[in-house]
Design a protein around this nucleic acid. Sequence first.
DNA 1: ACTGAAACTTAGCCCCGGCTAACTTAAGAC
DNA 2: GTCTTAAGTTAGCCGGGGCTAAGTTTCAGT
Lengths: 162, 162
Amino acid sequence: MAGGILLRLQFKLGDEPPPSLPSDGRKLPSKIHQRTRSDHASEVAEDYVEAIADAIDQHGVCRAVDLVKHFAVTHATVNNTIKRLERDGLVTTAPYQPVELTAAGSRLASQSRRRHEVVEAFLKKLGVSDQTAAIDSEGIEHHVSKETLGAMKRVLEQGWPE
Amino acid sequence: MAGGILLRLQFKLGDEPPPSLPSDGRKLPSKIHQRTRSDHASEVAEDYVEAIADAIDQHGVCRAVDLVKHFAVTHATVNNTIKRLERDGLVTTAPYQPVELTAAGSRLASQSRRRHEVVEAFLKKLGVSDQTAAIDSEGIEHHVSKETLGAMKRVLEQGWPE
DNA sequence: ACTGAAACTTAGCCCCGGCTAACTTAAGAC
DNA sequence: GTCTTAAGTTAGCCGGGGCTAAGTTTCAGT
Ligand SMILES: [Mn+2]
Ligand SMILES: [Mn+2]
Ligand SMILES: [Mn+2]
Ligand SMILES: [Mn+2]
């Protein structure tokens, strides 16, 4: 039995290609772009649950037409996207009814909103206009790692480094 | 005659939904997301010309296989992408030959590289690890406006604000 | 000159996230 | 109660950017 477990461990370790950690300083470009692609794969879901949560906070309910206006896309596009969100367990819907967030959707919305707020506030603190901070943060937020988010929070709470 | 011109102006003004400029402080969410989508539309081209320029600088030439390794995608994907770049006037190719940059491609590569460098250096100055700066900047770079890029440059050259 | 391996190409498939057009449903005005 | 209209749905299309599998070309080593 223990042998079986050991075998699994060995396989897992051997699976990691070249450890990359004891690097000679060279970059690992491949992994970098994989992360960017993975960020983009979750981006629409994050923006939608955030918008849905906002609409519910402001109007008590989120209708598809709210998302149509928010994202400046067509009703058909919103419908398709909501179907994917439902498939992925983030929202529930019924025909002609408002969109509801699942527990998972609600959690993702809170996290996304918090991260978005931090990034936007950080850009403002950097000195860019409110308008630019709003625009740039909408894309940047999805590529900000925990570590970078922490650095931005630190600046907001404790001022600039050094 | 003056009446005709006035009419045109009135129509144009009436056409813009609510002007948004003399705003009461409310956001214009739709335009924000349009910008993010437009950023993504040029993202792959920017990363490719940058990678092609790097390969040429380092090996004198850029082969498709270099891009396969750099982006961790298949040869087929690189081929498809290169075709789009050629269609868009950024590269030239011939069968089984290295990829060459057009003047436009070269220009875009320089701009993208410079912007990427600034973003990555800024993140490092913020205090995140080299590895995180490399990863996060790869996605962030495409969403950084001129204004935000300027703010980052200022920090790198003149230190933190306040 | 031959041959095997690496590089490249092509065909065909997939999902995502946009769109238009046509239709259906739900609700409020009357 | 009807009817208008806004909201929602559905079908079908497109391009982007991934993939696999199978075939072709180039080139180095012998
Ligand atoms: Mn957001
Ligand atoms: Mn966003
Ligand atoms: Mn992005
Ligand atoms: Mn990039």
